[in-house]
Amino acid sequence: MASSAFERGRRRSPATSIAIYLGVLVFAVWILLPVWYLVVSSLITPSQLGIKPFPLVPSSITFDNYFAVLFGNTGGKGIGSTDMGTRLVPAIGQSLLVSSVLVVLNLFIAGAAAYGLSRYPFRGARAFELSVIATRIVPAIAIIGPFFVAFRVIGVLNTPWALVISYNVFTLPLAIMILKNYFDQLPREIEEAAKIDGATRLQTLWIIIVPIARPGLVAAGVLIFLEAWSEFFYALVLTNQLTVPPLLAGFQSVQQFNWNALAAATVMSMLPPTVLVLIFQRHVVGALTAGVGK
């Protein structure tokens, strides 16, 4: 095996190698250039930002923008007239709260449903599963009207609950699909062995299946977190800039605001999902591709 891999590696012509490394260079520029622009913008002063062409390699950097958006005004050091410094941290807190509550709730509810669909199919189970998949096509924008009206009546507009409730529209079907595919891959002998040992169905699920299914549950949890953290439209309509995305969008429309500070806030908003996905990369990609092509 080792020698054949060695031969394969050698068979590549120099021209092919050059083409591949050129391709990698183009790929790296395509991904990194916008990100690099954002990070540099967050690390320079407004006067550096005004230089033409934009200093892709700045002569000096500063962390003032980050201090400003995290801790409020830093002695008038160019934050403009925005109050981002007092609002970003609470918004990050609300985003974390909404996302975490949803992850926990959905893992229980979707986990139970996915396991039931996978192991104990009942009449209509397949139809339910297909309609869960079909909900991905329903435009979330299309059905926000009833939520807005109902939430105004029961008085949860502008609270985290408005989002915890409404986000189920996209997170719950996603979690059910991911977990159903995952449970389908686990061998059925597990249940049979547990049954012989005298365990009840619920005991089997809780004591045996849940620990085995941890990678799938982690992947589903990360994906739920990602969707909830990223959601913008419902947060825009149902709350007054409660979470991070509508807050960032709000700053864009503030007059006299400053791209350096917004860039720092934007970097902050990208960190949690990116770090989470990079840590659980294997699990997440595995879960996403498990049901593909079925």
Partner: peptide, 29 residues
């Protein structure tokens, strides 16, 4: 994985400024 993990709205904000007519990185390049 980075672009995929980035919220859609943040991609909009990032590219709005990247393509900006006075401080944008695309113009610089």
């Amino acid at each position: 994985i980075i672009p995929w993990a980035t919220p859609w709205l943040v991609i909009g904000i990032l590219w709005k400024w990247f393509a900006d007519g006075s401080v944008g990185g695309l113009n610089a390049v």
